[in-house]
Design a binder for these strands. Structure first.
Lengths: 199, 199
DNA sequence: CGAAAACGTTAACAAAAGATAAGGATTTAA
DNA sequence: TTAAATCCTTATCTTTTGTTAACGTTTTCG
């Protein structure tokens, strides 16, 4: 996947939030960097401060915690989505989890420093603030739904819902990661699947 | 509680995100409105589009869903916090839950229309965008922690943690609301409390 | 290619949570 | 003030989940 192709994907992906004019894009694109993660390679590990927010041009990652020596996968991001250890990135605090590529993954990255630079750049500030706001607001809405699911639905209902709304990820992600994501154990998910099949 | 007192509380509360200069504040404060909710009065009900984002100058509210005729309380907000049905407010879609005062509650409110007006106001735009961004980012961090708790902790662990970090809300909120917030039934919370006391 | 690792299912048992109902204490409101 | 509503606890029973381990299959990688 060549650089120009990644940049294009990035620009299209951003259009969901803000559209940049040519002159703005000119500046912004000079503040990007690029990286590739091999499968199982980590984007960030516990204890490090996250220095980049990324756009996934290709591939996918999982977010996981380690608790009592066990990995617990809490989330996934795939191509055309943004990805970062937000809290660490935003607050400049050590990250408390891990982000790992589950496939070969191509990233377009903005360093924290470059982002600050753009937020202070007279020609870009307003649009970058808006971009940041809209991205954050978008994720708030996602989180709202996720928390609501934990509050109002049983694990079985959460599974059924996921199957309806994102069936494709079952082809792409090991089932025990999905179990974690639903807040249950892999064994329990296996049972739920059997139950819901029989009905 | 008089109006000036509410405005002051609001200004101090905002300082956590952005500080407004006198001339900016002059304009902003003309875009505010005020309201009082009596105990059990609703700020918003299911199906309505939320038109205000609020600052709670005094009092508190709970957010709840109705599922199978049952109320399930998912969150609380108290004085000096912001409060809104964010997703509905941001996306202009019908709200899917209820927000109800649990005490007599004093609000400072910004209507969606006034917010847009300020976001388009040349002297205020940048700061309002930043304000919106920082608020949203702040809530993302809160949500991140909340989801992590659901993923990595048992109900009992979530309860213990809550007792450590927010003991005060137990004096202020009926226990069955807290049970919902933890993702369990009131009966189950009562059992957990007994268990953890004995140990 | 072949050994090792990863993965999903199943079983058996223990632990926890849900559902329902009852009882007593407290609060609310007419 | 008194009846009604709210709230928390407890008990009982059912359902679900967690835990551990075993097994067969598939995938990974040297």
């Amino acid at each position: 996947m060549d650089k120009q192709c990644k940049i294009n994907a990035f620009r299209i992906g951003l259009a969901q939030f803000v559209t940049f004019e040519e002159n703005e894009w000119e500046i912004l694109s000079q503040h990007l960097s690029f990286s590739t993660l091999k499968k199982k390679e980590h984007f960030i590990v516990e204890g490090k401060v996250c220095d980049y927010m990324c756009f996934i041009a290709r591939g996918g990652v999982r977010y996981y915690h380690i608790k009592d020596g066990q990995e617990i996968t809490g989330y996934f991001s795939f191509e055309n989505e943004l990805m970062s250890a937000y809290k660490s990135f935003l607050k400049r605090t050590p990250n408390t989890n891990y982000i790992q590529a589950i496939e070969e993954t191509e990233l377009v990255m903005i360093s924290h420093q470059n982002l600050q630079h753009m937020l202070n750049h007279p020609l870009l500030a307003l649009k970058m603030e808006r971009f940041g706001r809209l991205v954050a607001e978008h994720y708030i809405c996602c989180y709202e739904d996720r928390v609501t699911a934990f509050i109002t639905q049983s694990p079985e209902e959460r599974y059924t819902m996921l199957e309806k709304t994102a069936k494709d990820i079952f082809q792409r992600i090991p089932q025990h990661f999905i179990a974690n994501f639903l807040g249950i154990t892999p064994v329990s998910l296996s049972r739920i699947r059997k139950r819901t099949l029989l009905q």
